[in-house]
Amino acid sequence: MSKLKLAVYWTAACGGCDVAILDINERILQVDEAAEIVFWPLAADPKYDDVKNMPDDAIDVCLLHGAIRNSENEEMARVLRQKSKVMIAFGSCSAFGGIPGLANFFDKKEIFERVYRESESTAGKAGVYPSPAVIVPEGELTIPEFYDTVLTLDQVVEVDYYVPGCPPAVDTIWTALEAIITGELPLRGTVIAGVKTLCDECSRKKEEKKITEIKRPMEVEIDPERCLLEQGIVCCGPATRGGCGARCTSANMPCRGCYGPTDHSIDQGAKLVSAIASIIDSKDPEEIKKITHLLSDPAGTFYRFSLPGSMLRRKRKEDVS
């Protein structure tokens, strides 16, 4: 039997997912035994043309991590989709937008203003913005176009499976790789992770969800046994898909929500808003206001990994009625 042809690619991402694949340690040998890595910019030194010149469906499985932030990301996503039999959105960025997706609380203009003009570290001439094409004495230089809105992979190409996580936990990765190697892939569209939310695998004691204060982890001595939310620390666990092994909560830190929503929830952020609102133990509007104001950056907290893939998708555009 010929070896499985595997591709790994990154779009708008930090590279943590690449490292996470290597974190499977010696099991990488099993991967090597079963698969031939035909394209992996981080590990090898391929060129765009290498993949563009492949016949369609030449790649058996492509693990693509990263959000779609610019035209190059989109182009490569389309090329890889065409060359791959199975496309896997790997990691939170490609599955739901991830950290780069938080840029959707702004638009291109605001981001450029901040980065190329206002930023304290802007060097050289302020207010010079990147442009897809620029004429220099040597001729025309081009760079990819920066999009107004960050997209998820499945908003650009068809995706067969999702492996969430920032980065995906080693066990989640291995479950996915094992399925690929053995060919025992689940139903198309499956999110390869837990079915229930994090609370199911979090061993903390849950008693009564009632809070009168919202605290940040560094402001309190956290009880390692009790549910973090019940201690007033915003934990995204109740609205976040499990499967990660509760790695954050077992390290005394609240869940940040990187595994995204469950199959039965459309909008993880909205679910978190209603969950937190439900457990605030007060009927006095003024007191409720006071408590909710203790939460810094609610939008960024509730939609930390899921904004582009959520129902909300992005901040409202002012010029659209």
Binding site: V195, K196, T197, L198, C199, D200, K206, E207, E208, K209, K210, L229, G237, P238, G242, T262, D263, H264, A275, S278, I279
Partner: peptide, 13 residues
């Protein structure tokens, strides 16, 4: 749906 409920207890109150 018991297959989805993670027992977070948010609904109880």
């Amino acid at each position: 749906n018991e297959d989805i409920c993670s027992g977070c207890k948010t609904c109880l109150n």
